[in-house]
Amino acid sequence: MAFTSDLDQITRAAAGDPAAVRALVNRYSPGVLSLATRMLADRAEAEDVTQETFLRAWKALPGWEPRAKFSTWLHRVALNLCYDRLRKRKESLPGELPDMADTRLAPHEALDQSQRVSAIEGAIGALPERQSAALTLCALQGHSQAEAADILEISVEAVESLLARARRTLRAQLLEGRTSP
């Protein structure tokens, strides 16, 4: 149902129908922005990625062929833009180790909610990029296994492997107060 509705809105948005454009933005920009924010841990950069993703979408609309779900295509574009930015960050800091935030929580510490949120966000941001993407898509955004696999362009089994490693690291850092092997 959503697929048909997407196609209808895509057709109308390609013709410049303002209501269809706004509907696509309202439906998909939160997911794209959320993915980019989790991946880049930088709101301004995430907004840039969101804008670039939608610019590419507008260009693609007139010739859109429903081979893939629009949502999957959009998230894949956003993800690749995030990978590009992360690669550039690494290139601009040659020889430096990535800045890994110490997100471990000491059991005796009574952290307030904002500190906990910061710790979790920091831990997700410190994950290897594909683990962070898999966790965001599945655990935070609720994409199905098949959708996440399509977006990441890997098998469902590979998604499961990324998720297991991501969760193991987070569990070690956040809940057990020790470093994951």
Partner: peptide, 14 residues
Amino acid sequence: ALTERLVASAPRPK
């Protein structure tokens, strides 16, 4: 503001 920028970047009506 971001929503409006995204909408403004879309194709114009014919």
